[in-house]
Computed example of a mutant assay.
Amino acid sequence: MGFRARIEERPTLRRTYQVGVALLGGLVLAAGVIMIPYPGPGWLVVFAGLAILSTEFIWARRVLDYARGKYDAWTDWLGRQSLLVRLVVLTLTGLVVVATLYLLNAFYLVATVVGLEHWTWLQSPFFA
């Protein structure tokens, strides 16, 4: 008897397993969404979170298929654009990264580490 079959025959274990999958998938998905604007595997982590959720939830499979289609369409569209358009998209993405790092107080944290704590203009309004 397989792993899934043993889970399916016990309702309490099935519900516990579903909650565990929901928590793990939700955490991975949230981490991926946070990582999207930053260099690295943001979209890969988003798709991994949706894939984890889709093992137990039909809605997650639909969202995963939809998101994959939109992601592929976006990358195809961007690949067909001129260098200027791609540079504008890159610049806007960079601005999102800089803004979030500022709001998360990362610049001021680095400034204090290197002895520039008097540069208070680097301090986020959320951490002032």
Score class of each variant (00 low, 15 high):
128 A>I: 14
108 Y>M: 03
104 L>N: 12
96 V>E: 09
88 V>S: 04
45 V>K: 07
119 W>H: 11
83 L>S: 14
92 L>D: 08
62 R>I: 11
33 V>M: 03
35 M>P: 00
95 L>I: 15
75 T>N: 11
28 V>S: 11
11 P>V: 04
127 F>W: 05
127 F>N: 07
66 Y>I: 06
95 L>Q: 09
71 Y>D: 03
46 V>A: 03
123 Q>P: 10
102 Y>L: 05
111 A>L: 02
107 F>A: 00
84 L>V: 06
113 V>C: 03
12 T>K: 13
38 Y>D: 01
33 V>P: 00
111 A>N: 07
123 Q>V: 08
127 F>T: 08
12 T>V: 15
41 P>K: 05
95 L>S: 07
71 Y>A: 11
108 Y>R: 01
16 T>L: 15
68 R>L: 08
38 Y>Q: 07
41 P>N: 02
92 L>Y: 10
111 A>S: 05
54 S>D: 15
96 V>F: 13
53 L>R: 00
8 E>F: 10
27 L>S: 13
83 L>F: 12
81 Q>C: 09
125 P>D: 01
84 L>H: 08
77 W>H: 09
107 F>G: 00
31 A>T: 09
114 V>G: 02
66 Y>M: 07
72 D>V: 09
88 V>P: 05
126 F>L: 15
122 L>S: 03
61 R>W: 09
6 R>F: 09
35 M>Y: 07
78 L>S: 05
106 A>Y: 13
46 V>E: 03
61 R>T: 11
13 L>H: 04
110 V>Q: 11
66 Y>C: 05
21 V>A: 01
51 A>V: 12
107 F>L: 03
58 I>Q: 05
96 V>Q: 06
115 G>T: 00
59 W>R: 00
10 R>F: 10
17 Y>V: 05
73 A>K: 04
23 L>S: 06
125 P>C: 07
84 L>N: 07
93 T>H: 10
2 G>E: 14
47 F>V: 06
22 A>D: 00
27 L>G: 11
39 P>M: 08
76 D>K: 14
19 V>N: 00
103 L>H: 13
122 L>N: 01
49 G>I: 03
46 V>M: 03
106 A>L: 04
63 V>G: 03
29 L>H: 07
108 Y>C: 03
84 L>T: 06
69 G>F: 09
89 V>G: 02
113 V>H: 10
98 V>E: 08
98 V>Y: 13
75 T>A: 05
89 V>P: 04
30 A>L: 15
116 L>E: 04
26 G>Y: 09
105 N>W: 11
92 L>T: 01
6 R>V: 10
102 Y>H: 11
17 Y>D: 08
87 L>E: 14
2 G>H: 12
12 T>G: 04
2 G>W: 13
78 L>W: 09
49 G>T: 10
22 A>H: 02
91 T>L: 11
122 L>H: 06
72 D>R: 11
87 L>M: 13
31 A>K: 10
61 R>I: 03
96 V>L: 15
42 G>V: 08
64 L>N: 01
36 I>N: 07
30 A>R: 09
76 D>F: 14
71 Y>H: 14
15 R>L: 15
15 R>W: 12
103 L>S: 07
97 V>D: 01
109 L>K: 12
40 G>T: 08
101 L>W: 15
115 G>K: 06
74 W>S: 06
22 A>N: 05
71 Y>G: 04
37 P>R: 01
